[in-house]
Amino acid sequence: MTTALPQRRSVHVREVEDDADLWALPPSGDATVSWMHDGRGMIGWGEAARFEITGPGQYEQAARAWSGFVSLLGGDAASAVAFTSFSFDDRGRSVLIVPQVLVTRWENRNWVTTIGPGTPSRHTPIARPGRVRWSDGALPRDRWRGAVAEAVRRLRRGELDKVVLARDLLAETDQPLDPRFLLRELARRHPQCWTFAVDGLIGATPEMLLRRRGDQVTSQVLAGSSWSGDGEQLLASQPYRDEHDFAVESLLTAIAPHCADVRASGPSVLRLRNIAHLATDVSATLTTGVDLLGLAAAVHPTAAVGGTPRRAAADLIAELEDLDRGRYAAPVGWLDANGDGELGLALRCAQLSGSRARLFAGCGIVAESDPDVEVRETDAKFAAVREALGA
């Protein structure tokens, strides 16, 4: 685990009257972090602390790193927030970042939290990406369709109940991509989603994996999708209902050792800009005192992003997907010094690197799935970032 810590750890909080465009506040696109929903949330920049985590036990490592930093802040820790994004599996790199400057907007009130001395930086205007060129990712469209067809054959043989397969798509622009531009466009187009940015991973996720407030835990499970927006079709389709039920059951099973009074309400239909999902709301009361990261370790990956049974799905993903997911489809969000916070799943997202963006999309596959339909569903899911980039 690598770390970077501030030399001075003083924390300053002030309320400001400012209705400015939040996305224009960071001095540049570098090191921007965000978690926004329907115009409310947080955006920050700079790094008061940074922890990079690799290998097994990434949630436990992150929890220890955050706890150690909180102890350094002492009584000021109540104002500190960490943004985090985890690797889908132990092969990748997870990151936890404490921004040096954090702007929190709730209703029409804004708070600015600064950790450390603060360093002046030159503000640059938000830049449009210009012309975008598209190319295949790890698996071209036709080869990915073949992987889905093979998964369906395995499912029909009874090797497992569900598997989630993902594909990627590459975008190249004439100049370095400005995360602030992509964030602003995603937030404008998808206000129902949580617009996030952590270490160059930018997206607008519709799925709240876990929210912890004291001893109260909530989640919204999404599985079963229609890009036509036909919610009644989803509710009436047994394959979609089965796919959804697997995802709900995997979450309930994972949180059961830590919770009581677990309740699931659904499915209902969540209609978004270019796609509709079956959604079930889950609530529970913590009985073990586990913090947000401990819960994440227990539930990830749910059947919504991995499959079921979990081990069999992971093996099939490794065999057929031919893709390093990085931090796609893993927990992303924020947490505070009390162990509370929110973690979504990193969906409808892209990893930015200079003038290149790597987009991700995936589908839940069951025995009745049609490979051609699944390909079109990934195209619909790519659309969130494609449209925001101007495609």
Results as ranks from 00 to 15, higher is better:
V163C: 04
A247N: 05
R133Q: 09
V290H: 07
D90K: 09
P56N: 01
A276F: 04
T218Y: 00
G229W: 12
I97K: 04
S67R: 14
L155A: 07
A298Y: 11
L210W: 06
G214L: 10
I53T: 02
Y59R: 01
P125M: 07
R325L: 03
G92V: 10
D324P: 01
D370Q: 11
R167V: 00
P117M: 02
V248A: 06
A204E: 12
S71H: 13
F382Q: 08
V103Y: 11
L96R: 02
E377I: 07
L251H: 09
D245N: 12
P99N: 01
G306W: 08
D215W: 01
S34F: 02
Q220C: 13
A254L: 04
A304D: 09
A298E: 13
S10I: 00
L320N: 10
P99C: 06
A49P: 03
L389F: 15
A330R: 04
P331Y: 07
S121I: 03
V33R: 08
I365Y: 05
C349K: 03
E232K: 07
L234Y: 07
F382K: 01
N110E: 09
H190D: 09
L316S: 07
N110Q: 13
T119G: 03
T285N: 02
V81C: 07
K162Q: 14
P6E: 00
D30G: 12
T3L: 06
A147M: 08
G326S: 11
T124V: 08
W23L: 00
G333F: 08
Q61H: 06
R105P: 09
S135E: 14
G289P: 12
T2L: 09
V262D: 05
Q175I: 07
G390C: 12
G214W: 12
A330F: 05
A367N: 10
A223E: 02
E185R: 15
P125I: 01
G231M: 02
G326T: 09
R14V: 13
S228E: 14
D242T: 14
F360E: 02
H37P: 00
G200T: 07
D230V: 04
G326C: 08
S79A: 15
V332S: 03
